[in-house]
C-alpha cells in the first residue's frame, strides 16, 4: 500500500524542492529520449516492419485528419467504457465490502486471485464460445482484465485502513457508517484509485486483445488491416495512439483523485 503513495509523495516533495519546471524538464527529456531511440531504431532499420518515429507521427496525423482514427475510437471506446464502468462500480463496491467483512473476503478473494493470475488471451476463445463475437464478448474481455485488479486493490486498501484513525472515530462515538464513509474510505482512496488506474490500463489491453482475437473492429481492426497490407507506419500509429490515449486517461484519473478526494496531496505542489 505504502509503495505507490510513498512514491508519489517523494515526487511531490521533489517538485517543491526544485520547482515544477525541473520535474517537467526531466519528464520531457525521458519522453524525447524514447522518441529519439525509436527514430534511430527505425532508421537503422531494425526490421522493414519497424517504421521511424517521424513516419509514424505523420501517419497518425493523417489518420486523425481523414477521420479513420476517430471512427475507430468510437468503436473501441464503447466496450471499453461499458467494461470499465461495470468493473469500477462493481469492483470498488465488492472490494470495499471484502475489506469490511471477513465472509465476503473468504468467498471472493480466491476467485479474483485466480482470475488475476489467469492468462486471459487463452480465455478469449472461451469468451467467444459463451458470448459470441459481438459487443458483449468485448465487454467481458475488458471486465476479466480490469475487475480483479480493481477488486483486490480496493480490498487491500480497506483492510489496511489505519487502525488508529478507526479507534479515534470510535472514541468520538462515530457510528459504523460514519467510520466507513468518513474514515475508512477516504483513508483507502489512494490505493483504490491506484487500482482504478491499473484497471483502466488493463481494460485497454482487454479491449485491444478482444479486437485482435475476436472480431477486428475499431483500433484492433486498424492494426490488423494495416499489418495485412504492410502499411507499418499506419499500424504503429494505431498502436502508438492507444498508448498515448491510455496514458492520458490514467493521468486524468490521478488528477481527479487529488482534486476531489485528497486535497491534502495538492499542497506543496
Amino acid at each position: 500500500m505504502a509503495t505507490t503513495i510513498g512514491l508519489s509523495n517523494a515526487e511531490k516533495s521533489e517538485a517543491s524542492a526544485f520547482g515544477l519546471s525541473k520535474i517537467t524538464l526531466y519528464q520531457l527529456l525521458s519522453i524525447l529520449g524514447l522518441f529519439a531511440l525509436w527514430e534511430i531504431g527505425g532508421l537503422v532499420p531494425i526490421s522493414v516492419a519497424f517504421p521511424t518515429f517521424s513516419e509514424t507521427t505523420v501517419a497518425l496525423f493523417e489518420m486523425i485528419a481523414d477521420g479513420r482514427m476517430i471512427a475507430a475510437y468510437a468503436d473501441t471506446l464503447k466496450p471499453l467504457l461499458i467494461g470499465i464502468g461495470i468493473s469500477a462500480g462493481f469492483g470498488v463496491t465488492l472490494g470495499v465490502a471484502m475489506g469490511l467483512n471477513r465472509r465476503f473476503q473468504w468467498f471472493w478473494e480466491p476467485i479474483f486471485i485466480v482470475l488475476q493470475a489467469a492468462p486471459v488471451a487463452a480465455l478469449i476463445p472461451l469468451i467467444t464460445f459463451i458470448y459470441g463475437i459481438g459487443l458483449a464478448a468485448k465487454v467481458v474481455a475488458v471486465i476479466i482484465l480490469a475487475l480483479p485488479i480493481i477488486v483486490l486493490n480496493s480490498y487491500k486498501a480497506v483492510r489496511n485502513a489505519s487502525a488508529s484513525l478507526i479507534q479515534m472515530c470510535q472514541s468520538f462515538q462515530g457510528t459504523r457508517l460514519q467510520q466507513i464513509w468518513k474514515v475508512i474510505i477516504p483513508n483507502a482512496s489512494p490505493v483504490i484509485f491506484a487500482g482504478l488506474r491499473l484497471g483502466v490500463a488493463a481494460g485497454f489491453i482487454g479491449v485491444i486483445l478482444a479486437e485482435l482475437l475476436i472480431t477486428p473492429t475499431g483500433i484492433g481492426d486498424l492494426i490488423t488491416y494495416h499489418r495485412s497490407v504492410a502499411e507499418y507506419a499506419e499500424m504503429y500509429a494505431a498502436v502508438f495512439s492507444v498508448i498515448v490515449f491510455s496514458a492520458i486517461t490514467v493521468g486524468s484519473l490521478e488528477r481527479a483523485e487529488t482534486r476531489f478526494f485528497r486535497p491534502d496531496k495538492k499542497v506543496g505542489r
Partner: peptide, 27 residues
C-alpha cells in the same frame, strides 16, 4: 470522555479546522 492519541490520529485529508471539529461532525 475524550481521548488524545499518542500518534495524534489526525485525518490527513482534512484541514486543522475540520480535524478539530471532527468529534462534533460525528454528532
Amino acid at each position: 470522555r475524550a481521548f488524545v492519541f499518542q500518534d495524534f490520529a489526525l485525518l490527513p485529508w482534512a484541514t486543522v479546522l475540520r480535524n478539530v471539529a471532527f468529534g462534533l461532525e460525528l454528532r
